[in-house]
Design a protein around this nucleic acid. Sequence first.
DNA 1: GATGAATGAGAGTTCATTCAT
DNA 2: GATGAATGAACTCTCATTCAT
Lengths: 210, 210, 210, 210
Amino acid sequence: MPRTPRAALRPRKAPSQARSWVMVDTLLAAATRVLARESLAGFNTNRVAEVAGVSVGSLYQYFPNKAALVVALIDREQAKLAQALEEVVHANAGHSLADGLRALACLAIDQQYRDPVFAAALDHEERRLPIGTQLRQHEQRLGAAVLAFLQQHAQELPPDRVSPVVARDLLLIARALVEADAQEARKAPPDLSERLLRALSGYLGVGQRR
Amino acid sequence: MPRTPRAALRPRKAPSQARSWVMVDTLLAAATRVLARESLAGFNTNRVAEVAGVSVGSLYQYFPNKAALVVALIDREQAKLAQALEEVVHANAGHSLADGLRALACLAIDQQYRDPVFAAALDHEERRLPIGTQLRQHEQRLGAAVLAFLQQHAQELPPDRVSPVVARDLLLIARALVEADAQEARKAPPDLSERLLRALSGYLGVGQRR
Amino acid sequence: MPRTPRAALRPRKAPSQARSWVMVDTLLAAATRVLARESLAGFNTNRVAEVAGVSVGSLYQYFPNKAALVVALIDREQAKLAQALEEVVHANAGHSLADGLRALACLAIDQQYRDPVFAAALDHEERRLPIGTQLRQHEQRLGAAVLAFLQQHAQELPPDRVSPVVARDLLLIARALVEADAQEARKAPPDLSERLLRALSGYLGVGQRR
Amino acid sequence: MPRTPRAALRPRKAPSQARSWVMVDTLLAAATRVLARESLAGFNTNRVAEVAGVSVGSLYQYFPNKAALVVALIDREQAKLAQALEEVVHANAGHSLADGLRALACLAIDQQYRDPVFAAALDHEERRLPIGTQLRQHEQRLGAAVLAFLQQHAQELPPDRVSPVVARDLLLIARALVEADAQEARKAPPDLSERLLRALSGYLGVGQRR
DNA sequence: GATGAATGAGAGTTCATTCAT
DNA sequence: GATGAATGAACTCTCATTCAT
């Protein structure tokens, strides 16, 4: 993937017709499968098109280059995650802080273990991409959801633990722990949830002290 | 980098002569420079050999393929880190837990910020590599150093916080937080140290509660 | 542009309805603009159709292939030029040979400098095209106009300077000199007209001898 | 051929070893043959490499891109021409102006008719290339040779006909007339030499007046 | 007739790896 | 052991052309 001008990372056109959305969907699904099966090594535009049962040309009709395809993939995945996160936060509105954290931990684990290879590959690509793209918007959204959660429990938290930076750190921690375990075994070890919870509540200063 | 048989990842030979070690060193130094200056995009065996002032053929005399070179690079870097870590742990033998954690945090930050591009690229490659290589040995060693540190302060910690898994989690958390910040700015933000400390001591259950 | 059978270079049909002529006109105008703005690099059928505000399919309704479009473009441009030339010749019917040559030189210069990129691109394509197409008809017509001019001044000219070959040579010389200058600067150098005149009258044997 | 940075047009390395020169030679010879046989349509790097009996990779070892190959081709051809021109000028040092012009005309004709397709293709490409490359140096050299010729006969010429611009115009005229004829028949028409001479001496103001 | 999504051959270029010298 | 020219599979991307709607 050669250096790509920033502007070129967004999809070529917002497909207005139904058929177009199907195409985009097909391509992203194919890209997902390729990434899941063959990791980044086998991920190339020809292969994606082939798996999608479509010609390369069609791929380039919707994505100006390979990077844009990857961005769209990440974008979509992060949108899904953000939505799930927002729902969890909303669903736990009345519950205790502990329950909320537990729900968040579950979400993080589910998300990563549903397809570890795919999730890991996306994370990698995400890091490689230039900062300042729309991808950061989704991170903002993820952060905002977590921040909303923190604010729900503001009275139970030290005041300096209710901030965007804290929200971001929680997301980073969760991702790091889950991803590392996910790379070692297909099923989450039984203590992962426990450890993740410990890390999150510890950072928030609500851990059980000795 | 096409799929490489696992066995092929180790250096072609343990060079027994002094001259050979010089060669390996030169190559790894060149690889480091290439990675630091041109990131993964410009990292290829021909370029590394060129920068090393050596022929590609020579490179392949010591590394059976590109992956092996990368592995050696990571290996070496982790060895350095492990050594630094062990020294820090040893140097802090008599000090307080808080001081020890602070020292560890500093080490993590220094390590990543000394050359962010290089560090990020290596992390990237490390994750891509097949598991089960000798790289895990160094992770073991890193883990062991942290574990030793935990054991030094066993009485101040909850008993279940003195274990290899905990050590590994601490390393993961540190790396995640520092790496994320390092990708956004060339200098560490002033609060990074604080937040990292909070995450580590929080996970250990020694954070200051409200 | 893959090898195209000679027969395929003429427009698909002589559009008999008014609407069709509008279409052809729109397409040629669009082609002209694309060629002028983006040179040969950006000249492709999809782009032309887009600029024309028409679907590619429609383009192929009127031109069997890209080459035919180019031919039509050149054809039209040469027709314009031929007409202009004929008018100049006619307008200078009573004037002196020197005045006539001056007028011809002006025409050549104007023609090329009005839109250098476009003119150069067309010349380029014209040369690439297989010989023997209807394009030669226009060259005939251009030649005929110049020949008519020569005949008007037959008595002032050496007898062997009144022939189709001479006419063609004059056109070639004019084009070569003007095109070369046009490629170097956006505005004609002040001496171009002078030099061109010298070349033309020199070839005709009516130059001022030392 | 996508837009190429100016600097990238020169050969990748000045091959210092004998083997390298052989390679460059082989490649240029192959390029010449491809251009002569299949014109610009079939001229692509893979084909050139194939005809050279060499892998594409080798081609790119010596030419950073396709454009550089073309430039080298033109460069070489112009160098040959320049040398031939200089020799002709030198050889005619003592002779009359008319004889000198005749010799120059012969040279122009020979040059273009030796391989019309190839010569035409090169001329086309040359025009397309960005100005300001080393190619202009050869044009300078060609111009200088003609200028030297003019200076030899300065006393027989109007004073304003001894200048670089005049030299350039003579070259342009010669090229235009010969190229046009060369495109129409494999053998030069018997009157070409005559017409060319008339054009050149006419421009110089030494034509036989009626 | 018009549309424009889809096609896919083909072009330019890279780079891990080999092997004759 | 060292060299580095040579290799060629693989990859990204373009664009002339078709055809179902």
